[in-house]
Amino acid sequence: MFTLPIETIVLIALAITGIAILLYLREYFFRKKNEEIQFKLSQQTREKSMQLLTAAEAAETQVLAEGKYATHKLEEEFKTKLEEMLQMSGKSIQTSQNELTSFMEDLKKRSVEFEDASRKVSEQRIAALLEKLEQKLSDFLIQTEQQTTSSIELELKSTRQLIETYKTQQLKLIDENIIAMMEQTLNTVLGKKLPLKDNMDLIYEALDRAKTDKFIA
């Protein structure tokens, strides 16, 4: 490291301060200029804005006036048109009302006619149905009567037959009883009374018959 003499150091320091003061002064003059420029600019803008404002106001009043005029015109047009329409609709309502009333009258007439006609028809039908019903009922009654009578007849016949068969059966029984009694009486009588000879004859007869039948070898 080398040491600098004090005079250099003081010289350097003075140089530096001198530069610094020069720079500062430059800056100061710059700033002033700028401020002046700014001041001028601001004035200019103010003037322009004032001009614009006045122009705008004038335009505004013009527009307003025009606007009012237009609405006035529109109102009048609207009024006339509305009146026309009201008239027209009034007329159409009238016509339709007339039509409606005439239609209703027509309808009334028709319905009355229809009622009459239907009444007549239904009366006829009912009459016809009742007739049919009567007829069928009478047929049915006749049929059932016939059937019951025939079935009763059948029953009677069958019961009669049953009675008949029962009678014949009983008679047969009685017959058999008669024969049995007869056999018994014969038995006792002959057993006591038949002479030996007759019995022997019968036995011989039996033997002979056996021979003819080739019953015994």
Binding site: L186, N187, L194, D198, L202, A206, A217
Partner: peptide, 21 residues
């Protein structure tokens, strides 16, 4: 009742009065 019935070789024949009746 009277007469006789005969049996031969297991076959029975009634020749009596009962059968005639």
């Amino acid at each position: 009742i009277a007469g006789a019935a005969l049996v031969c070789k297991g076959v029975y024949r009634d020749y009596s009065l009962r059968s005639k009746i």
